[in-house]
């Protein structure tokens, strides 16, 4: 077995999977994509300069893999656009929530679905910052952005999630 693979699997496999899962919200797809990440990593490991940590480097590749997938799926436009459509947008994702995410807490379930309404960039920032607990500077490294852009995007994402959550909660309250 390739030693690079072994090292990455042992140290970071679950992180990459977790990251991809929340980005695509589909177990099988996340499994495929995580393999694609390894393939790209094995082809370019010698280009890893050690400027960033191995984990941020891996996650930046994972992000690119996911974005390429979205492009292929040709749905990126809609996802990127969802930001502007809050009012009329109803959550279309009727896929069953995977067993891990079967949520005792209804509010968290709602939030999980609301993630779909973030743009891809916003979702990456949310995953890095809140789900993977990475710092602003690590997130900036993954995205190749400035820290201020990460902050702005994070702020927008939270604002967007809040707006949508409050709208849905209010709706449920009425029923």
């Amino acid at each position: 077995m390739d030693s690079v693979f072994k090292e990455i699997y042992t140290k970071h496999h679950q992180d990459i999977f977790h990251f991809l899962f929340y980005l695509v919200k589909n177990r099988e797809l996340a499994e495929d994509l995580v393999q694609e990440v390894y393939i790209r990593v094995l082809k370019s490991y010698d280009r890893f300069e050690g400027k960033s940590t191995l984990k941020t480097w891996l996650l930046s590749i994972a992000r690119n893999v996911a974005i390429d997938h979205f492009r292929k799926e040709n749905t990126l436009k809609n996802k990127l656009f969802s930001r502007t459509d809050w009012k009329d947008y109803d959550i279309q994702d009727k896929r069953p929530i995977p067993e891990e995410v079967v949520i005792e807490n209804e509010t968290i379930g709602l939030l999980y679905r609301c993630l779909d309404l973030c743009t891809v960039d916003q979702r990456v920032v949310i995953i890095c910052r809140y789900i993977q607990d990475l710092s602003i500077s690590e997130t900036a490294e993954i995205l190749g952005w400035t820290e201020s852009k990460v902050k702005t995007t994070q702020h927008r994402a939270i604002k967007a999630l809040k707006k949508q959550m409050n709208r849905l909660l209010e709706k449920e309250g009425e029923i």
Partner: peptide, 19 residues
């Protein structure tokens, strides 16, 4: 209505998913 920090708190509670 929920606040920013409540949203952040909820995000932290999203379950971890394993391969």
């Amino acid at each position: 209505p929920m606040s920013d920090s409540e949203i952040a708190e909820l995000l932290h509670q999203l379950p971890s998913v394993k391969d």
